[in-house]
Design a protein around this nucleic acid. Structure first.
Length: 493
RNA sequence: GGCCCUAUGGUCGAGUGGUCAAGACGCUGCCCUCUCAAGGCGGAAGCAGGGGUUCAAAUCCCCUUAGGGCUACCA
C-alpha cells in the first residue's frame, strides 16, 4: 500500500452519530494513521437538504474528537481540496454534469415522479427489475421544447453502458463483478439541481484524491454505479473496502430498540472513549495475536485491512462493558468522579458540581469502588454508601445481623478501638477487625469474621454487600462512621 | 421479484486442504475473601443442511436454508 494513502469519512448529518458510523470512521482513521503521509479527511454529505442539520454535523465532529479521531483535512480545518461540505460544492459538480451531457454520457429526463413510479410498478408486476426504461434517452429538440413548455423540471440521468461487466476490487470482499444491465440509467442530479449521493460521492472522492474508500457494506451494491461514473468521468477509481454492518442482539440492523446506539449516549453513560475505540476495532477486525486491550497507538500499529471480517457483527454490550471496565481500573479516579457528577445530580445526591474539597474526598471513594465499575454512571449504584449518613436498616437479614447476640459487643469494641486510633486509614482500621475476633477468642468465644464484619458493614453502609469495609471507613472518617453506627443501632432497638 | 453480500459455540472471532478446531466476552466450578466485585485456575459450549472435488475438507465447487444489503429526484 502506498504511503500517499488518503482516506475519508463522509457522514450525512441527518441524526445522532451512530456507533456504526464511528466504526467506519475508525477504520479509515486507523488506515491513515498507519502511514506517515496518510491523510484522513472529513467531508460532510449534506445533499439531503431536508434531513441534514447543522446540529447533527456538530454532534459528529464532537463525537469524533471525543473518540480521538482527529482529521487532517476537511470541515473546520480546511485543506487544498475544499470546500468539504457538499452543498458548498454545487458549482464544482455543475461543471462535470455539463461535460457529461455534452459528451452524451448523461441526459435530461423529463419524466415525472408519478410516471417513473407507474413504470416501476408495472415492471415489478412482471417480475422484472424496476430500472428506468430509457423513455427520455433520445429526446428530439422538439420533444424537449414541448416538455419545457409544460413546465417540467428535468433531472439528469446517467447513460449507463449496456451489456458490460462492471468490475472492481474490494479489500474485504475480493474481486467484485456486476452486470451493468442491472443498473439502468440512474439519476445523478435531482430536479432541484442537487446531485444525488452516488454522483457527488464519486466527484468528491476523485477530486479530493481519495485512494481508499472504506465504508459500510450497505454501499456495496451502489459501487458499480459509482464505478461506471468514474469511468465516464475518466477519473481514477479508488480501492474500495466494504465493511460489514453492525447488528443488534436480535441480528437485525442496530436501532433504538437495541438500547444505546449513538456515540453520545455512551459518552453520557460514562464510557471511556479509548474503550469504545478499542471495542469498535475488535468488531470486524482481529489482531494477529491474542491481544484484546489496545491503546490507539497499538491499534494503529496492528491494524490492517487484511484481517477485516466479512460477516456482520452483533454488538455485544457485555463485551464493551468488560473492555470499558479494564480501562476504568486504570483510569484516574478524578476522571471517573467527573463523569459521575451528572448522574449523582440526577439522582439527587448532590445539587451541582463538587467543591474542590468535596471532590478530593469523593475521589478517594471512587478509588475504593473503581474495580466494581463497568462505566461511570454505575457510580450511583454505590453512591448511597458514601452519601447516606442516615443508615436505613431493613428488617430481615440486615436487622438480624445487628441483633445478633455478639453484635452489640462487636460494635462497642469497634467504636472504642476506632476512637483510640491516631489516624483512621484502611491500614489502621484493618487490624481492629482481627483484634475483635481475638478478644472474643480470649473470652472463650469463637466467632468468625462474618460476625464481626457484617454487623459493622450493615451499620455503616446499610448494605450487606460492598467494597472493602476498611477502605470505606477510611474515606468516611471517624465521625461519620460513629454517627452512622449509633443511628443504625438506635433504629433497630 | 431481480442483483449482490454473508454463514465456525449464546456473542466477537482465530483458522486459507492434514490442528485434540485458538483466544476473549458471557455462563459455570474451584481458589482468594466479611460480602459484592476484581484477580487466579478449571469446565460446558461451535464448523447451518445436502451433494460433489480430493488420499484428506471448517477450509475448494454446486444446491438448499437462514440472515443482511441494494433495487430512491435518501445517504
Amino acid at each position: 500500500m502506498s504511503e500517499q494513502i488518503r482516506v475519508r469519512f463522509a457522514p450525512s448529518p441527518t441524526g445522532p452519530f451512530h456507533i456504526g458510523g464511528a466504526r467506519s470512521a475508525l477504520f479509515n482513521w486507523l488506515l491513515a494513521k498507519k502511514y506517515a503521509a496518510g491523510k484522513f479527511v472529513l467531508r460532510i454529505e449534506d445533499t439531503d437538504r431536508v434531513r441534514s442539520t447543522r446540529e447533527s454535523e456538530e454532534n459528529i465532529k464532537a463525537a469524533l474528537k471525543w473518540l480521538g479521531m482527529d482529521w487532517d483535512e476537511g470541515i473546520d480545518v480546511g485543506g487544498e481540496y475544499g470546500p468539504y461540505r457538499q452543498t458548498e460544492r454545487l458549482d464544482l459538480y455543475q461543471k462535470y454534469t455539463d461535460q457529461l451531457i455534452a459528451e452524451g454520457k448523461a441526459y435530461y429526463c423529463y419524466c415525472s415522479e408519478a410516471e417513473i413510479e407507474a413504470e416501476r410498478t408495472a415492471l415489478k408486476a412482471e417480475n422484472k427489475m424496476p430500472i428506468y426504461q430509457g423513455h427520455c434517452r433520445n429526446l428530439t429538440p422538439d420533444q424537449i421544447a414541448q416538455y419545457e413548455a409544460e413546465g417540467r423540471r428535468p433531472v439528469v440521468r446517467f447513460r449507463t453502458p449496456e451489456n458490460q461487466q462492471v468490475r472492481f476490487k474490494d479489500l474485504v470482499r475480493g474481486d467484485m463483478c456486476f452486470d451493468s444491465n442491472g443498473i439502468g440509467d440512474f439519476v445523478i442530479v435531482k430536479a432541484d439541481g442537487i446531485p444525488v449521493y452516488n454522483y457527488a460521492v464519486v466527484l468528491d472522492d476523485a477530486l479530493m484524491k481519495i485512494t481508499h474508500v472504506i465504508r459500510a457494506e450497505e454501499h456495496l451494491s451502489n459501487t458499480p454505479r459509482q464505478v461506471v461514473l468514474y469511468e465516464a468521468l475518466n477519473m481514477p477509481i479508488p480501492t474500495f473496502g466494504h465493511i460489514s454492518l453492525i447488528l443488534g442482539k436480535d441480528h437485525t440492523k442496530m436501532s433504538k430498540r437495541h438500547g444505546a446506539t449513538s456515540v453520545d449516549q455512551y459518552r453520557q453513560l460514562g464510557y471511556l472513549p479509548e474503550a469504545i475505540v478499542n471495542y469498535l476495532a475488535l468488531l470486524g477486525w482481529a489482531p494477529q495475536d491474542e491481544k484484546e486491550i489496545f491503546s490507539s497507538e497499538e491499534l494503529i500499529a496492528a491494524f490492517s485491512m487484511d484481517h477485516v471480517a466479512k460477516n456482520p457483527a452483533v454488538f455485544e454490550i457485555d463485551k464493551l462493558n468488560w473492555i470499558n471496565a479494564q480501562y476504568m481500573k486504570q483510569a484516574a479516579p478524578e476522571r471517573i468522579a467527573l463523569l459521575a457528577v451528572p448522574h449523582l445530580v440526577e439522582k439527587g445526591y448532590i445539587s451541582g458540581p463538587f467543591s474542590e474539597e468535596e471532590m478530593k474526598r469523593f475521589v478517594r471513594f471512587i478509588a475504593v469502588i473503581q474495580d466494581h465499575l463497568s462505566y461511570a454512571a454505575q457510580v450511583v449504584d454505590f453512591a448511597a454508601i458514601y452519601f447516606n449518613d442516615k443508615v436505613e436498616v431493613s428488617v430481615g437479614e440486615m436487622s438480624e445481623s445487628l441483633l445478633d447476640e455478639t453484635a452489640p459487643a462487636v460494635i462497642e469494641m469497634f467504636k472504642e478501638m476506632l476512637q483510640a486510633l491516631d489516624q483512621v486509614t484502611a491500614e489502621t482500621v484493618q487490624p481492629i477487625f482481627k483484634a475483635i475476633i481475638k478478644a472474643f477468642k480470649a473470652n472463650g468465644q469463637k466467632i468468625g469474621g462474618q460476625k464481626v464484619y457484617m454487623p459493622l458493614r450493615v451499620a455503616i453502609t446499610g448494605q450487606m454487600h460492598g467494597p472493602d469495609l476498611a477502605q470505606i471507613i477510611e474515606v468516611l472518617g471517624r465521625e461519620r462512621v460513629i454517627a452512622r453506627i449509633d443511628g443504625a443501632m438506635a433504629s433497630v432497638r
